[in-house]
Design a binder for these strands. Structure first.
Length: 423
RNA sequence: GCGGUAUUGGUGAAGUGGUUAACACACCGGUUUGUGGCACCGGCACACGUGGGUUCGACUCCCACAUACCGCCCCA
């Protein structure tokens, strides 16, 4: 084994790729119904796009970004997430212009890159499917996005979904809460885990998420964001919940839920699932939230936005197996002798042009072996041609399931097969 | 970036410091000449992740590196 793929990357081989196509097709169908259109942006962007949007204290920027200088000395980075590039495109193409319907709704899919330690369902090159909607601050839109995420996962048959929501409030509420957390945790500083000591400096909200046992004890009595929302933020959240109730969406408010990236405010949500594929631990498959302010951050006009992203690798671990995505082979052409071999080229081309999937042996194998292949490939029919058939302008068609055989006109092979199909 | 476990053929794997690295599946070929799914027979690891070291001798012991997986960080 001389060469191996870079650490944390995957070859998606035939068989596996059909599952990807399936997921992507479902995504497209569902998003179409909600009138979201696909947008495709570059896989790398100017480094600053991510630095600006994610916040330079975030781990993504400080240690996980694949960044590099190109030959023109431009500082670029492979995208670690999808939102920043979409926002950049939104601003650069002036999609906020009056001629565009608001909200401006898009979805994307594709590879993302983070320099981190690989684990199951977690690669350095991984894939996300995400959606974004710009230009409306409406809570109804928040609900549409959440509903669409649910519709997508439901359509894929994901079971045991749990919807967790929270709000970070508007910037004022968030700032007040931030201060309250600092005030609360500072006296405990010495008792906090090393990780949380750093979090206290950089991002106190993250302490709420700590897995350290001792931290959890301290977190128990920490102030809740819900007590620091100003009136408007609080009302907004209550209204949002009532909309979810109207839809009979089963959700849980998790006031300790936080976000990795700095740009979120108001509604945030995560869909979690418990599955044997992850040792029955609860994992997040889809996460998103509102990011009013991000468009401005990247140089656009004041524009509210909201979206979600989901990791395809994780998703695939959840849906695997059950699906039957095999594609049938209509015809396997069996050739006997050199003349048949020569004639096969034209016959195959004719079958395919007529819409049949068709294949043959290219290793000069014996008749028996060719039938064996046809069997392994699950061919519906074999068409056998040898010297006899060529002389009489016939082809021997065999139904592989029933074993029935009969000769048909070789010249009208495709039409004859269609006739048999219809019976 | 930190800690742990693992690494044998196409696949699942057994295995011992010392002549030919089990077994199964898959695949290929054959059981007389143009036919599948069963059965039987046969073939299929110049080789045990890579590089060093210890040893008379290592796949089996030690070290480093690589990769995978698990946990932490972080996150999808």
């Amino acid at each position: 084994m001389r060469y191996q793929k870079p650490k944390g990357t995957m070859d998606i081989l035939p068989g596996e790729s059909s599952k990807w196509q399936y997921v992507e097709n479902v995504a497209k169908n569902v998003f179409d119904r909600y009138r979201f259109s696909e947008i495709r942006t570059p896989i790398f962007e100017s480094y600053e796009v991510f630095e600006r949007s994610s916040g330079d204290t975030s781990d993504i920027v400080s240690k996980e970004m694949y960044d590099f200088k190109d030959k023109g000395d431009r500082h670029l980075a492979l995208r670690p997430e999808g939102t920043a590039g979409v926002v950049r495109a939104y601003v650069e193409n002036k999609l906020y212009g009056p001629e565009h319907v608001k909200p401006y709704k898009v979805w994307y899919k594709g590879p993302m890159f983070r320099y981190e330690r690989p684990q199951s369902g977690r690669q350095r090159q991984f894939h996300q499917i995400g959606v974004e909607a710009f230009g409306s601050d409406s809570p109804e839109l928040d609900v549409e996005i959440i509903t669409m995420g649910l519709a997508f996962l439901n359509e894929l048959g994901i079971k045991n979904l749990k919807v967790a929501i929270n709000t970070l409030g508007d910037p004022e509420s968030r700032a007040n809460y931030h201060q309250a957390l600092v005030d609360y945790f500072t006296p405990f500083k010495d008792q906090l885990s090393d990780d949380s000591k750093i979090r206290l400096e950089k991002n106190p909200l993250r302490i709420l998420d700590s897995k350290d046992k001792n931290d959890k004890e301290i977190v128990k009595d920490a102030p809740s964001i819900l007590d620091y929302l100003n009136d408007a933020s609080s009302k907004r959240f209550e209204y949002l919940k009532s909309l979810l109730d109207d839809l009979d969406i089963n959700y849980e408010v998790d006031p300790t839920m936080v976000r990795g990236l700095d740009y979120y405010n108001h509604t945030i949500f995560e869909f979690m699932v418990t599955d044997p594929a992850f040792n029955n631990k609860e994992i997040t498959v889809l996460a998103g939230g509102r990011y009013n302010g991000l468009v401005e951050e990247l140089g656009g006009p004041e524009t509210p936005g909201i979206g979600f992203g989901l990791g395809v690798e994780r998703l695939l671990l959840l849906i695997d197996d059950q699906l039957d995505l095999t594609t049938d082979l209509d015809v396997y052409l069996v050739t006997i002798g050199e003349k048949a071999e020569k004639a096969s080229v034209k016959i195959l081309a004719g079958l395919r042009a007529a819409g049949f999937s068709a294949d043959k042996d290219y290793l000069s194998r014996k008749t028996k072996a060719q039938f064996k292949s046809a069997n392994n490939l699950n061919a519906k029919y074999t068409v056998t041609i040898g010297d006899n058939e060529l002389e009489n302008d016939t082809a021997n068609v065999k139904n592989m399931a029933t074993g029935e055989e009969h000769p048909v006109s070789l010249a009208n092979l495709a039409a004859e097969l269609k006739g048999i199909e219809e019976k």
